[in-house]
């Protein structure tokens, strides 16, 4: 079962803070420990910033995964921006078109248990990340 807990609109710097704080609160409620809370919130901070910087606006949807075998959290970060032309390149460490560190995408993959990236030129980007309770 997948239960949507909250949706955060992401348009500016303040929304990045709101998104990562909300996700942290939900992660805690679901039962994640301090380190996992930090991992999940940091990953969402990276993806929310990418929305603001590269796509101007979008949204972050926080959901609870509640299957018998797997419980955890799923966060979908979505925008209607320019899209990512080469996903593999964007996932590699140090690649950036924004003059920053190029660590957001590869870092998010390392911090989470699963990461799916969908993107189409001119249509937008949708990144789904998951973390499961151990």
């Amino acid at each position: 079962m997948r239960q949507v807990l909250e949706e955060v609109a992401v348009r500016n710097n303040t929304d990045i803070v709101t998104a990562r704080n909300s996700v942290r609160t939900h992660a805690k409620q679901i039962g994640f420990g301090l380190v996992d809370q930090s991992r999940i919130a940091t990953a969402v901070s990276e993806l929310a910033r990418n929305i603001v910087v590269y796509a101007k606006s979008g949204k972050v949807e926080i959901a609870k995964l509640n299957e018998d075998s797997k419980k955890g959290i799923e966060v979908v970060c979505e925008d209607n921006g320019p899209g990512i032309p080469d996903i593999e390149q964007a996932m590699s460490e140090g690649f950036t078109t924004g003059g920053s560190l190029g660590m957001g995408m590869p870092g998010t993959k390392k911090l989470m248990d699963a990461m799916d990236v969908w993107s189409e030129a001119g249509k937008g980007t949708r990144i789904t990340i998951r973390k499961f309770l151990k």
Partner: peptide, 9 residues
Amino acid sequence: DIVDSFMGR
């Protein structure tokens, strides 16, 4: 309680 790549940098 949250330091991402931006804040860390």
